[in-house]
Design a protein around this nucleic acid. Structure first.
Lengths: 342, 342
DNA sequence: TTTAGCACTCGCCTTCCGAGAGTGCTAAAA
DNA sequence: TTTTAGCACTCTCGGAAGGCGAGTGCTAAA
């Protein structure tokens, strides 16, 4: 089915491994020297020529070594890659990190720290998506008056996520009035996802509360806003790490990537569309053109089996897939347990 | 006092102006051609030699044109620079931008948008510092219970800044108990700056509230935390813009800067130590080594005459000082009025 | 005091090897 | 039939050489 006999697979694995380490095209001599293939350079050359014809390898130019093609990486990731182990240092770092993290109570902060740690551990750029509010279920709403004109709305989801926003109050309302509106909303909306606030439901609320329609309006607008201004849900870490990669010595590419890093919505989109579980997107498998010579490893974190958000690592296609995958897996697992105790 | 006669000043201005535009060393011919100096190249050469000897210009190498030295820029900024006008496009952009901004109620969001706009307008990198909580005066504190174990503390400063944090409650407290603690704190702390919470005051609070010392402890810890975890007070915009500058074609420099951009505390420090009003720091006048071939233009924004935070623009020393200064001035002015209506 | 003229300097660009690494092919060995 | 050794060939990379051009400093004339 794969179309590659064992020897070809061994050679392909060796090429990928070597190229990931050195970033230099790999020649037949190097392979026969440094990897236990028990084959002469000439034999390897033949096999490599085959692998090239099959589309797994490519040559930057005639008479250079081979480098893996996108298809080559894909095959490597799917079939050849060994499981990596965390190094003792990495374990230690994670241990310390999550001990530190225990003190934090707010998910956004936690998630930001995770981005940082992820970039430190992987030495690539990390992208982390905080929980998307609109997919969470409404648990309760509180209203804290600040002065006559303003109030703080506190929105609590069933996932324990807390979001708040200041709203302007259209007119001075008595505490009783406010309380009744809030109580009503709490009752009506409990258990609903925020995305599920349909127009019909809204209309019902409006008619039910016609006497306080103005304050209701403010509150609903606030909900609306909460679910829309979600660009800031993304956190990056180690953006400067891309400069360490020789494939990004070209300023143009770097520029494109850095510009992309400033575009929260597009990044959010990329992470949102990632399926649950660990996923690896290589090169043009990524939807954004800027990432066409990058690879992105993502995983989603959960609470009570519900996916909350996504964490990801972005590097060159020549990424240390095994190491990154292991780190990401470990990180999501620990993050999951951390969140559930929150 | 200045030691430069009018003609030298004119020439220096011309050199700076030209170099800012072209990023190329400026020759005597160019000056006599394109600037109305009514002098021949030879004369200009003599003057330029003088200016070099005086330290205002320097040559990248013999037989190249001159470029301004740091001292040259300093003199230009202090004495030679013309006031720039906003272009109609810039005015339009600002107008639209601040109309948009009116809708926002939270200072952090506003400030983040300001960073973005500032980088778009200047085409440099912008740094914006949100209000520092600890210098604000305590206005009131609210406590919103979430469940038995957690509560949301809402802290409101006299500048209208709202900050909130979830705290773990050491034990279940009745609503009355909570209210009394909060009421007490509100009374005791009203009008105090948060930085001014001295150990002595703390002790007094402790003894006064010995019966509820545990919840008090949580609240104070939260205050403490609020004033310490202020790394996130800084917002950047247009970080990728530095790549457009020819002086940063060198990867090393870029790397250093990008790394710096990830170090919130150090950036915060830089902006915090900037004096009120518009300030220009050129090259090594900047405290951070990474910024030694950059210039930073900063200004502080205010509420009721009290400085809240700082906005800044970071570019190469070959920065368009006049344009940036004008934009920053305009931006702070508008930001000030926006905040005061908030 | 200013300007024109001129010789000189020096970085940049292009061109031009030579070295080195790696290949494909062929023919011999297993 | 498969593997290996040998060899000619290809192509990139790095350094050297040399011409070009922009700009200078100096001198002498205006």
């Amino acid at each position: 089915m794969t179309g590659l006999n064992e020897r070809k697979q061994k050679i392909l694995r060796a090429v990928v491994t070597d190229y990931i380490q050195t970033a230099e095209p790999v020649g037949s001599r190097t392979l026969s020297r440094h990897y236990q293939l028990a084959l002469s350079a000439a034999t390897i050359r033949n096999e490599m020529a085959d692998l090239e014809e099959l589309g797994f390898l490519k040559q930057p130019h005639t008479s250079a070594g081979r480098i893996p093609s996108q298809q080559g990486y894909r095959f490597y990731v799917d079939s050849l890659m060994d499981e990596a182990e965390l190094t003792p240092q990495e374990k230690l770092y994670l241990e310390k990190f999550f001990t530190q993290l225990q003190k934090m109570r707010e998910i956004d902060q936690i998630v930001q720290q995770v981005a940082k740690a992820l970039s430190v551990l992987t030495r690539y750029t990390s992208l982390v998506l905080a929980p998307r509010l609109k997919q969470c279920a409404f648990a309760q709403m509180r209203l804290v008056p600040i002065d006559e004109k303003q109030a703080l709305v506190v929105l609590i989801t069933d996932t324990g996520y807390i979001r708040n926003k200041v709203i302007k109050m259209p007119r001075a309302l008595s505490a009783d009035e406010l309380d009744s509106v809030v109580a009503y909303l709490n009752e009506e909306l409990a258990g609903q996802t925020i995305a599920g606030l349909t127009a019909a439901r809204m209309r019902k609320l409006r008619t039910d509360l016609y006497s306080r329609v103005d304050i209701l309006h403010s509150l609903l607008a606030m909900l609306e806003e909460c679910s829309s201004d979600e660009e800031n849900r993304i956190f990056l870490g180690g953006t400067s790490n891309i400069l360490d990669q020789p494939e990004f010595k070209d300023m143009e590419k770097v520029k494109h990537l850095l510009t992309l890093f400033e575009e929260g919505e597009r990044l959010t989109f990329i992470l949102e569309t990632a399926p649950a579980g660990v996923t690896i997107r290589i090169g043009t498998e990524n939807l954004l053109a800027e990432m066409h010579d990058c690879s992105l490893v993502t995983a989603s974190y959960h609470l009570h089996g519900r996916p909350l958000g996504t964490i990801g690592v972005l590097g060159p296609t020549r990424m240390e897939y095994a190491r990154v995958t292991t780190i990401i897996k470990e990180m999501t697992e620990r993050l999951n347990t951390l969140i559930s105790t929150l």
